[in-house]
Structure formats: structure tokens, C-alpha cells
Design a protein around this nucleic acid. Structure first.
Lengths: 207, 207, 207, 207
DNA sequence: TATGAATGAGGGTTCATTCAT
DNA sequence: TATGAATGAACCCTCATTCAT
């Protein structure tokens, strides 16, 4: 008789993850371009060269595609961040490394980042996407502690509101996903360098 | 500037513009909170204490509400910007004035700004919302010319990519709408001051 | 601004319950004839002379229609049963009254009874329909105690398995809903009389 | 009697009829438990330890499985009934034998009987399942003639409506399939005996 | 001005079925 | 024999919109 699974889950069989990944990339691209709500399952299927119903062989729902896209992105992001945070760098070097890592991530997961930027606030309210809020908290803690370390060590100015500074830094970095195009004239490292130069030293000419 | 109504539009009879404005404020609030697509006409009506169908006495469509919200906001925004740009200020003072004006606008039209941030890219593709792209172009021109004037006048650094700088400045300013809460501890002017200090002089301690 | 209801519920306004009742009657008829699962919302709407989507102005879902049909039926049924059970009759008279009441109920709610017969077992497993199982239990208790009273009082034979007897009696009564047509040649009271005669005295000629 | 396959039917090659029978038993079980419409082909496949598509090597369609289940059951049923009807018994003995045979059939084909009870009315309307209506007619004729013989021979009461009596008897017998569990405390013969005692002599104590 | 009821297009999802491997 | 992937029709439901009152 064999086991009687109550739910299909071909996606767990670890076989043919290639198609899944391809489909997720396609979906992410469309989500990023049109917005999650405005994207129909049919549109994704069109881009993938199949019929809407066929997507459901691979995924449980449109929402589960979104979840997997965001989870995959955040997992990779935190791999990079954790490596930086565990490296024992000084506050300025940590900030530089985090920013550079962020732009690299935008380069690799542009679509996912754009989706994250646009939808995460609303999504986080749903049970299913609480991991977004959690990530947000870890993110904030990492940045705030770095900035505070820098202020304490007289590397960063102490006349700036740390939370405001955090917000400015955070947003500018990630908003870049909305205009960044991989393969353009600026490499992620180059963008990071310019961005850091501006954030650290300002755009005004020194007196 | 005026909209071109495709159908009857009793709202043009100049009667009860107060109710209209109130309804638009409500709609903007909901659009900002839930996203335009995710917002149903009934949700707006609920918040306004009426039934969904009743909104159509006041407005042609959900989209026309959105359009009016964004048009009203942009009109006011450009009133402020034009005043600054026509004042004959130097590049640094112009930048400071534009930033300050922007934060004031966020303070007054938080919801509209949030909507603009989130939806304008997709909307701009539609015939009806070409005014968004147009505004975007004027905006870019104003900022780029100010930055270039500053570089030429040795007020701003010349080793930064002007377009990248523009994007960073633009985004940081407007993204603030996503977390700014009017009536909070920071006035728009205070936020502008901190922001300008960071952008102009950097967050690093001077050597 | 008024209250901000999170859910529509025009059905609670107690206004225009006539349309609701009419729609429910239509739905019940179709459910009874084609089976709940095999009935499409479009079919119901067709029978009601409207479009499928319009049903959702009156009801939350197909399932909620089913629930209301069954609840209404069971409520009325128990009104009748409780009156009988509270009347302080002897076991034989109670049995006669319960049977007669049942056939009357079939006469009034033929569709609902047929649906109940066919679907209740599966439905009862769902959270939403636990009231079916509860009713089932009350039903069983009422019948068993009546039979047992009758056995104790030497009104009913004591050589029959009471549970088996209960099942036979219960099923024969309700299965009648599958072939009974109101307005036919037999009134519910006449059917009850014949049925009782058979159940009480048997079909064999007395020795 | 034989089905007329519209397409290829490798199952006719007389190979591995054992697997077929096993699959049909599984399908019957699931149909009985969840209802035919509510049962998905995948659920059957799950219970059989295979994938949904694989069932189509063995059967033309979900419907053909249902047909075969019901045909097999009815064929066996009529083998038993015909033996009884051809035995030249008196009306009372015929009735006893038919009832006993019915409970035996329920014991052997519980799932098929349950399916038959629940679905036959709707199915009979379809071309493919006209054999159900035909069986129904033979069934009715056998019972009615037996009852009428009994009335004529003063073995059964003549003050009861024969058609009503037939319906009661028929339904009670078959509805038993919905609660009967093979291997329980009552053998089919024991249930038949109790049932016959009730039907023939009634549940009331004789005066 | 607003309501109540309906429209109709479309969206996400399910599922029996097919078919190359 | 069975799998994996896809098809395509149909289904339940949502929602912007309309309109008579």
C-alpha cells in the first residue's frame, strides 16, 4: 500500500530543483517589474512558457512562490552579513563591508531585493511572513550596534541621531535595487565605493 | 493640468469640495497603508462610513482618485520647488532648500508621498499617469543642474559620479516617507538639518 | 467617519431576508438534486436568475449557504422534537409523535433533509459543521431513551437489540426524503401512520 | 454487460487482473468514505502507493473505475438474488432469503453498496450508468411481486400500501451499509434475523 | 447624496487526463 | 508498469463598476 501522503510535495524530493529555480527566477522578475499583487499567475506562466495550472505542479500557491523567493534571498544575505559581523572588524570597516556586501546582493538578487523593498512592510503582518520582520530586527541591531561602536570609538560623528543615520543608510543602500541594472557600467563594488565615500565624507568640498 | 473626465463628473459642479477632499485624504491613507492594488474600493468606503457604490457619486473610478491624489501632491510640491529654484540661490543653498522643502512636503502629504514612492514606476507607463514621468524629468533636471553647478563652483566634490549622487540624495529623501510619522519627535526641519549634515559632511569624523 | 467594519455582512442587517430565503431555497433544491460537490455556484445562480458573482453579495461562500440551509432545518426540527420530548408522553406515544414530526419535517424541508442525508457524514468532520455531529448525538439520545423506556415498560419487545432497532427506525424515516415528493398522494401524516403501523406491528399477518 | 472502451484499454489483455482488483478495492474504499465527486484521482493513487497518472495505465478514467466497481457488485448481487428467486420459495421465505442475501452482500461489498446508495440516483441519468436504473427496476419488480404474492396468500397484511412497504424495506436494508462495519459484533445473518423479526412482527409487544 | 443589488471580467486554484520517457 | 511534467477546462470567489430608487 505504501505511505499515504496527505499533501503533494514534489518540491521536497530534491530532484529537478533546476526547473524550480528557473521558475522562481522568472516569477521574481515579474513580481519585481509589475508588483506582487498586480502580477497574475497567468503572466508568470506565460513568461515560463507554460499554462497557469502547470505552475501548481511545482508550487503550492502564488504566495508560496513569493515566500520562497524572499527566503532564499534573505538566507543568502545573512550568510554574507554573518561572515562580516563575525570577522571582528572595526566599526568603519564593518560598515564598509556591510555596504559592499549589500550591493553585491543587489547585484545577484536584484528582483528579490526589489520585491522585498516594495512588499515587505505589508507582508510582514501575515503569519507566513513573520520571518521578514525578524530579519528586519536582526538587520537593525547589526547596523545600530556598528554605528554605536563607531561613535564610541570616535570614528563616527556623535552629533548625529543614530537611528536617523541608520535609516538613511539602510534605505539608500536598498533603494538602489529599484534602479540598479546588473551588467551596467558600474560594478557593485564601484557603486559601494562611491556610496561609502559620500556617506562617510560627505559631498561637500572640505574647507 | 486638469483631468479630462471621460464621463459625467458631478464633482466638477464645484459643490461640496470639502467632502471630496476628505474622501481623498481617506483614500490616500488607505492606499499608502495597504498599497493601491491591494486596496479595495470597499475598504475606502468603509473608512469613509459609506458604501462602495456611493464613492462613484464623487469620483469616476478608483484610478481617478489615485490620479487626483498624486496630482494634488505634485502641484503643491512644484509650487515649493519652483519658489526655491527661482530664488537665485547658490548651489549649496539651493540643495539645502530643496531638501528642506521635500521634508516639509513629506510632513504635509505623507500618504501621497508614500503612494508615489511605491507606485509611480508602474503607473508612469500608463497614458493617464504620464504626468508622473514628466515630473520625474523636471525633478531630475533640477537636481542634476544644482549638483553640477556646485561641482563647477567647487562647492561639491568633483570625484563623485553626479548621477549616482543624485540618485542617492533623491532616494534617501523620499524614502523617509515610509517611516516618517507626522507629529513625532523630529520636525521636518530638524530631519532636514540632520540629513543635510550627513550628506554634505559625511558621518565620519574629520581627520 | 463612522465604524470601520472589517467584513461585509449585509445578511445580518435583518433587512430583505426574503431574497436570502428565496436564494437559499433555490440552492437547497439544487444541492439536493445534484449533490453539494457536483453543484456549481453558477448553476445555483442560473436557477436564481442571476450571475454567479452576485450570490456573493448575499452569502460569504457556497459553504456558508450549505451551512445556513442545514442550520435552519435543524433548528426547526429541534423545535418540533423538543416540544414532543417535553410533553411527558409515554414511550409509544413519544415514538409515534417523533415519527410523525419527522415526516412533517421532511414535508417542509425535503431538500434540506435530502442534503443532510447525503452529506452530513462527510461534513461533520469539518470544524464548521460540528453542529451536525452534535445534533446527531442529541437525536440518538432521544431515540434510544425512548426505546429503552418502552422496553422497560413492556411496551416494546425486549428481544431486539436497541441500537439496531434505533438505526433501522432512524434510517427508514429519513431515507424517505429521497423519494418523498410534497404534494403527492400521501400526506406526511398518512405516511407516518403507515410507517408506524409497520414498525410497531410488523408486516406479517398475526397468527 | 461488457463495457465498451472508447480508447485503448490494455487492461483487457487479461494480464495482471489481481492488481486491477486491488486498485478497484482501494478506489471503492475511498469513494465510499469521501464520496465519488470529492475523491480525487490522486487520493486513490496515494492510497495505492502510486502517482495519479499511473492509474491511467490500468483504467480509462475515474468514471470507468466507478462503473466497474458498481457493475461487479451488481453482477454478484444478482447472482445471489436470482438463485433465491428461482428457488420456488413461498413469499415469506423469499423475503427472508432476499433480506439475508442483501446483508451478506453488504458484508462482502460494503464500499460498493455505500457508493451505490449515495451516488446511484445521480449516476443513473447518465448513458453510461443506465444499467443502474435497469437493476433498480428488476429489483423493484422482484420485491413488489414477492410482497403481492404474500398479500394474496394472506401471509402479509393487506392494509398496508405495497409500494410504501417496499420502499421502507428496501431502504432500511441498504442504508445499513452506511453504518455496518464488517468484522463487528453482528454477523450479517444475525442482523438479517433481527431486521426480519422487526419488519415481520413489529417492535411493539403483542397484546 | 447615498443605498442595495447586481454585473462581468478576471484571478487563483484544482483536477482529470495525457504523454514522452 | 510507473513517473514526471504538463494541459485545459472548470470552479469558487473578488472586485471595480453601474444603476434604479
Amino acid at each position: 500500500m505504501g505511505a499515504v501522503p496527505t499533501k503533494k510535495n514534489p518540491q521536497v524530493t530534491a530532484s529537478a530543483p533546476a526547473r524550480r529555480r528557473e521558475l522562481l527566477r522568472t516569477a521574481a522578475e515579474v513580481f519585481a517589474e509589475q508588483g506582487y499583487n498586480a502580477t497574475t499567475v497567468r503572466t508568470i506562466a506565460d513568461h515560463a512558457g507554460m499554462l497557469a495550472g502547470s505552475l501548481y505542479y511545482h508550487f503550492d500557491s502564488k504566495e508560496s512562490m513569493l515566500e520562497e523567493i524572499l527566503r532564499t534571498f534573505l538566507d543568502e544575505l545573512w550568510d554574507g552579513y554573518d561572515a562580516v559581523l563575525d570577522a571582528g572588524l572595526g566599526p568603519r570597516e564593518t560598515l564598509e563591508a556591510l555596504v559592499t556586501e549589500s550591493f553585491r546582493e543587489i547585484d545577484r538578487h536584484r528582483a528579490a531585493v526589489a520585491i522585498y523593498q516594495k512588499e515587505s512592510r505589508q507582508l510582514a503582518a501575515q503569519e507566513r511572513f513573520t520571518f521578514l520582520a525578524e530579519s528586519q530586527r536582526r538587520f537593525e541591531k547589526a547596523w545600530l550596534s556598528t554605528l554605536e561602536r563607531g561613535v564610541a570609538g570616535r570614528v563616527f560623528r556623535d552629533d548625529l541621531d543614530v537611528r536617523l543615520t541608520y535609516r538613511f543608510v539602510r534605505d539608500t543602500v536598498w533603494v538602489a535595487a529599484s534602479w540598479y541594472r546588473p551588467g551596467g557600467q558600474h560594478s557593485p563594488e564601484e557603486i559601494a565605493r562611491q556610496y561609502l565615500s559620500m556617506v562617510l565624507d560627505g559631498i561637500a568640498v572640505r574647507a
